[in-house]
Amino acid sequence: MRLETERLILREWRDADRPAFAAIVGDPHVMRYYPATRTPAEADAWIDKMIAGLSDGSAHFLAVERRSDGALLGLTGTATIRFEIPTSPKLEIGWVLSQQYWGQGYAPEGARASLAHAFDALGAPEVAAFTARINEPSQAVMKKIGMTRDPAADFEHPSVPQGNPLRPHVLYRIANPAP
């Protein structure tokens, strides 16, 4: 699977991506809205999970490569939501980019391509995004790609321990614009 934008190539994962991805998800600042950074072995397992999701159709998280120089920026894509969330959305969109690529419009650009794929190729009626309530940068991206917060669907993330400030999550959604 491959999606292209003006500046990005969203593509399947390669073994050569593993060291750069491990550096991205091992960075405490990048992962500050996740419960923990990832070790290189955990980063490899994450890539393996994304490859498996592409293979079985349950997820479409792709490597984000910059067209101009082939740099791996991070990941973006969609996946089936596998736990209960109020209002029961079925498909989520997400992204994780290296800090050096923040503030350049790459996250919204890649996310828009992933949304188009979800609506056009997958026929999704809607896509949701969720993050820790305190993660304002990701919420800004959600707004930039046309998503609207649904306060009725805010929830406590079941994978985050009770009392952790990352446990309260907000949910944004966007409907497929096709009739």
Rank of each mutant, 00 (worst) to 15 (best):
L3E: 08
L3A: 10
E4S: 14
E4C: 09
E6F: 01
R7D: 00
L8E: 01
L8M: 05
L8F: 00
I9S: 02
I9H: 00
I9C: 01
L10R: 02
R14H: 13
D17F: 05
R18E: 15
R18S: 15
P19H: 15
P19D: 15
F21W: 05
F21A: 03
A23G: 14
I24S: 02
I24Q: 02
I24E: 01
I24A: 04
V25E: 01
G26L: 08
H29V: 12
V30S: 00
M31I: 13
R32V: 12
R32H: 12
Y33A: 02
Y34H: 09
P35Q: 13
T37Y: 00
R38W: 06
T39F: 04
P40Y: 00
E42M: 14
D44S: 11
D44C: 05
A45H: 07
A45F: 06
W46A: 14
W46T: 14
M50Y: 04
I51D: 00
L54M: 09
S55P: 03
S55V: 05
S55A: 13
S55Y: 08
D56V: 03
D56Q: 09
H60L: 10
H60R: 08
H60Q: 10
F61N: 03
L62T: 08
V64C: 06
V64I: 14
E65Y: 11
R66M: 07
R66F: 03
R67S: 06
A71H: 07
L72D: 06
L72N: 04
G74E: 06
T76Y: 04
T76H: 08
G77P: 13
G77T: 10
T80I: 11
R82W: 11
F83N: 10
F83S: 10
E84K: 12
E84T: 14
E84L: 15
P86V: 15
S88T: 13
L91D: 00
L91E: 02
L91Q: 04
I93Q: 00
G94I: 10
V96F: 01
L97D: 02
L97I: 12
S98N: 14
Q100P: 11
Q100S: 15
Y101A: 03
Y101Q: 05
Y101F: 11
Y101E: 01
W102M: 06
W102A: 06
Q104D: 10
Q104V: 15
